[in-house]
């Protein structure tokens, strides 16, 4: 790890200022992603702005729903009574990620900003447009078993690794950020971006902006939810495919409302709008679920080693829908 200047600003204003003054300056939250990348030389900060003392750790009910402070840990969110009661999908998704120790360290803001686990991104000796723009994409013709099916470009086929974000996408969360120019809100679906020609940019955060909180709007999805994560071992592994499902069923088992999002398939959490539209108003039958799963796959494109995802993804959607609706 290279030497760096370490600062611990007292308030958000100072933090934002401190960050904007450094060229290679980074906020440090739980450190579970940043410190790892520093060890691997993937990022080489000149300055570390430790934001852990900023008062952004609260989880509180606000008018627009539930506000998760950017520094609330993943465990605190997953175990929070309001989350368990009103947003159980979020709790399931968080607990499907990483390990208990990591979730005790990882924060809401850091989780949103964690970078891809693509092996070419982490290995300085191999090409990666995300790490070193213009160097090429090693995964494109390389080992791309974990890689994207949707929305990729010929510059980058990496996927976003966050489980929490898949649930947040499904729940229509809103990200509150603060920068030198003031505060703004970003709809969750607009927060992460597709790689396009600039895969080095994971999201739409402007340089120097600090995530303050993530808001969850009121939700009716308190009962029929499921987060299904298929991976290469039973726990402590990133997703091959993950699916977040939230259903609002009436007493006749008709789908009043539904949210579907998939992880492990794109550069951002992949909301399945077309499948949702199909399911809305229909009954919660295996047949409809199957069709919804097929609809979700429109436009999917696989590479040499992730062909299996073309089948695993709809299977996982189907299984998640069945589980959420109580059919298994």
């Amino acid at each position: 790890m290279n030497p760096f200047i370490y600062t611990r600003p007292a308030d958000t204003g100072a933090a934002i200022k401190s960050l904007s003054r450094g060229n290679q300056a980074f906020f440090l939250a739980g450190g579970t992603n940043l410190v790892d990348m520093m060890k691997m030389g993937v990022v080489v900060p000149e300055k570390i702005v430790d934001i852990n003392r900023l008062p952004l750790r609260n989880i509180e009910a606000v008018q627009s729903g539930l506000r998760l402070g950017a520094l609330a840990t993943n465990s605190e969110v997953a175990d929070h009574p309001d989350v368990l009661k009103n947003y159980p999908l979020l709790s399931l998704a968080i607990n499907a990620g990483a390990s208990p120790q990591l979730r005790n360290m990882a924060t809401v803001g850091g989780n949103l900003l964690q970078r891809t686990r693509c092996p070419y991104f982490f290995d300085l000796t191999m090409p990666c447009n995300k790490r070193a723009p213009g160097s090429g994409c090693g995964a494109l013709a390389g080992f791309n078993r974990m890689h994207a099916l949707f929305g990729a470009s010929d510059k980058c086929i990496a996927v976003n690794p966050s489980d929490m974000s898949v649930a947040l996408a499904a729940l229509d969360a809103v990200v509150h950020v603060r920068g030198a120019g003031g505060d703004r809100e970003i709809k969750f679906e607009d927060f992460h971006r597709l790689p396009g020609d600039e895969p080095q940019l994971d999201n739409t955060l402007a340089k120097g902006e600090l995530i303050m909180a993530v808001d969850l709007p009121p939700s009716a999805f308190t009962k029929h939810v499921h987060y299904l994560k298929v991976r290469d071992r039973s726990s402590y592994a990133f997703a091959l495919i993950s699916v977040a499902v939230a259903l609002d069923l009436d007493k006749d088992n008709n789908i009043k409302d539904v949210r579907l999002a998939m992880g492990g398939v794109a550069h951002k959490p992949w909301r399945l709008r077309a499948s949702e539209d199909f399911l809305k108003g229909r009954s919660a039958t295996e047949d409809n679920f199957k069709q919804a799963a097929q609809i979700a796959m429109q436009g999917a494109k696989a590479y040499q080693y992730n062909q299996f995802k073309l089948k695993l993804a709809p299977n996982t959607i189907l299984q998640a829908l069945k589980t959420a609706s109580g059919q298994v």
Partner: peptide
Amino acid sequence: AIFDHKYGRYVNGNFADYHVPVNAD
């Protein structure tokens, strides 16, 4: 353990991507 033969390097040469069984297995 998986190689990328273009570079002759392991692509999963670490404890997160080379999967040994965990307790839940």
